[in-house]
Computed example of a mutant assay.
Amino acid sequence: MGSPLGDFVRAKRDSIEPASLGLPERGRRRSPGLRRSDLAARAGISVEYLTRIEQGRDRNPSIPVVNALADALSLDRAERDHLRYLSKITGGECSAHTRPVPPRREVRSSVLQTLRLLEPGIAMVANRLGDVLAHTGGFALVTSGTGLLDGDAPNLTRYVFTDSRARSFFADWGDVADEQAFDLWLAPSVENSEWFATELAPVAGPDFTRRLNRHVVPRRGTLRLNHPAGHEFRLLRETLELPSDAQQLVVFLPADDATAGALDQLRQRDRLQGRLRAIS
């Protein structure tokens, strides 16, 4: 039986071309990537120990070993943070038998006031499970007709993987799917993440489970949206962490003049139709 830590190390090893690290090619191989022996040598550990880590038979590598693996794999800062997090949860600091407590859905009044100040901009408050907990009217306008905010408890992760409209709405659906799957590792608690992933996997299928288990740290570039009204949006994202609430405030900004113009057209049409949108 594997482990999240072992899965990540193995996935990164498989993704590395030996030549990128200055290592010679050693003939054809049945599997891609860096050999265990090469990674073990770079990290200063034995091949047998690396095998135990990758297979989940050693779940408590020391901090120096974790740092050595990060160096040997040439991980960037986000990947190093993820490796340390996986080392923590794999080592058993979080009990898998603890009954999951749902993350809080309440949004503090001061955060809601901040959202009001951001109108008519595009902003939302969410948690790492993908629950959309509050949003501006601008966010509702940009997502109108997509199905994202349908229902009493909208969830972005569930929408991305189970609603066919998401694949049209998100121009780079695969990138967004990678982001939402990865964020489950950063959920309010390990128990929350496991509970949600177990619930979602049967209906989301292999697109979800494959992304969840390969541990690709997303780059989170420009978000491209295809609005049902025919507008194309390119949005930058600024994220404010609310650690005491295990929530995030995400603000979406036009990435170019064309997007700013399209947003103005959408707002003008909404005003003409006389619809009033309030903070949710």
Rank of each mutant, 00 (worst) to 15 (best):
225 L>T: 08
149 L>G: 08
172 D>C: 00
148 L>I: 10
145 G>R: 03
134 A>F: 11
76 D>K: 08
192 N>E: 14
16 I>V: 14
233 F>E: 05
150 D>L: 14
198 T>N: 00
26 R>I: 01
181 A>T: 04
188 P>V: 00
145 G>S: 01
173 W>F: 00
51 T>A: 06
22 G>N: 06
23 L>S: 14
252 F>I: 01
78 A>R: 15
114 T>E: 07
121 G>I: 04
41 A>N: 12
241 E>H: 07
152 D>G: 07
28 R>S: 11
234 R>Y: 06
220 R>F: 05
237 R>M: 04
268 Q>V: 02
213 N>V: 05
166 A>D: 14
21 L>N: 01
111 V>H: 11
259 T>Q: 01
227 H>L: 05
106 E>W: 02
252 F>N: 04
159 Y>T: 13
37 S>L: 11
30 R>N: 08
136 T>W: 06
157 T>S: 10
89 I>G: 01
62 S>T: 15
197 A>R: 05
211 R>T: 06
146 T>V: 01
88 K>T: 14
186 L>I: 07
148 L>Y: 08
19 A>V: 15
234 R>D: 07
223 L>G: 00
46 S>T: 08
238 E>I: 11
240 L>I: 15
109 S>A: 11
86 L>Q: 11
237 R>E: 15
109 S>T: 14
126 A>S: 12
64 P>R: 00
17 E>C: 09
264 D>V: 10
135 H>M: 08
51 T>V: 15
216 V>S: 03
138 G>N: 02
192 N>G: 10
85 Y>C: 04
58 D>L: 03
12 K>E: 01
102 P>G: 03
220 R>W: 11
8 F>G: 06
37 S>Y: 04
182 F>D: 09
63 I>Y: 08
139 F>K: 00
183 D>E: 13
96 A>R: 12
40 A>W: 08
186 L>Q: 06
130 G>C: 12
188 P>F: 12
132 V>I: 11
79 E>N: 07
123 A>H: 06
182 F>K: 06
157 T>D: 09
239 T>G: 00
198 T>E: 10
229 A>Q: 09
102 P>K: 03
19 A>I: 15
153 A>E: 03
256 D>H: 09
102 P>C: 00
40 A>D: 10
64 P>N: 01
68 A>W: 04
49 Y>Q: 09
260 A>P: 07
260 A>Y: 04
104 R>Y: 02
247 Q>R: 05
260 A>L: 03
33 G>C: 03
139 F>I: 00
149 L>Q: 10
89 I>R: 14
121 G>L: 00
121 G>A: 03
107 V>S: 08
138 G>Y: 04
158 R>S: 06
280 S>A: 11
143 T>L: 09
3 S>E: 08
36 R>L: 12
39 L>S: 10
6 G>R: 05
177 A>Y: 11
53 I>Q: 02
256 D>G: 04
166 A>C: 07
217 V>T: 07
14 D>E: 14
59 R>M: 01
153 A>K: 10
242 L>N: 02
13 R>Q: 10
25 E>S: 14
188 P>K: 11
162 T>N: 05
221 G>Q: 12
236 L>S: 08
